[in-house]
């Protein structure tokens, strides 16, 4: 047997390095198949302070740039929302849940396409809940916009994905405030709000939620 070890000694010496090299060569999968699809590249900020976010994306006409400055308020509990017509709707209640409202004040060039953002709340345990209208229930899926970063009445330009959508008539104001409602578990206290158009780049704003605030109050 010593003969075999002796004959293969160089290969045996090289083996640990070869194994390391093989693992390293496979590590591209983390970068190619995981990293780009998760929120791994944040622009950080704090509630009450404006944060600038610019992100160049592609549509059918080429590239366009999302460019905005966001100031997030601290999340407060909410029991209702007001739709575009000014009608007030209560959120249906469900045992063990509550709805948080986080106001985002946005400053942006009215020509910058800002539609199609996604927003989620993250708590101290790493739990994350997306802004979606259907879990809010009741009138929310009809009365709230599918994407919350632009005012529903004047969303401004959209990226062109070849759907032939007409540009909306109303010009988006240069500064506006939109509420973001998210239904979470009762014991979920948001610690940050994350906003993105395309992963992995995103805004991550630390917030100081006020769980004791009056849910009925209009922000």
């Amino acid at each position: 047997m010593t003969g075999w070890w002796r004959r293969n000694r160089w290969a045996l010496l090289a083996l640990p390095f070869v194994l390391l090299l093989a693992a390293g060569a496979g590590s591209y999968r983390v970068w190619n198949f995981w990293n780009p699809y998760e929120l791994t590249d944040p622009v950080a900020g704090r509630s009450g302070e404006p944060v600038r976010f610019t992100h160049t994306l592609e549509d059918d006409r080429g590239s366009y740039t999302v460019d905005l400055t966001v100031t997030a308020a601290d999340p407060v509990p909410a029991d209702h929302f007001t739709d575009q017509e000014g009608m007030m709707h209560y959120f249906p209640r469900s045992e063990g849940s509550r709805v948080w409202r986080t106001d985002l004040t946005v400053q942006a060039d009215p020509a910058s396409p800002l539609t199609g953002c996604q927003v989620r709340l993250v708590d101290g345990l790493g739990r994350a809940t997306l802004y979606r209208t259907s879990p809010l229930g009741g009138e929310a899926s009809l009365g709230l916009p599918g994407s919350p970063c632009v005012p529903p009445g004047a969303p401004g330009p959209s990226p062109d994905f070849g759907f032939g959508l007409e540009e909306p008539a109303a010009t988006r104001p240069a500064t506006y405030t939109v509420p973001v409602y998210v239904r979470t578990a009762q014991d979920f206290v948001p610690e940050s709000i994350e906003i993105w158009w395309e992963t992995p780049w995103h805004l991550s704003i630390d917030v100081d939620a006020d769980a004791e605030a009056d849910a009925g109050e209009e922000g």
Binding site: G96, S97, P135, A185
Partner: peptide, 11 residues
Amino acid sequence: CPLTAPGLPTR
């Protein structure tokens, strides 16, 4: 059973 938030028991 709807899309549900983490930690929220849905019956």
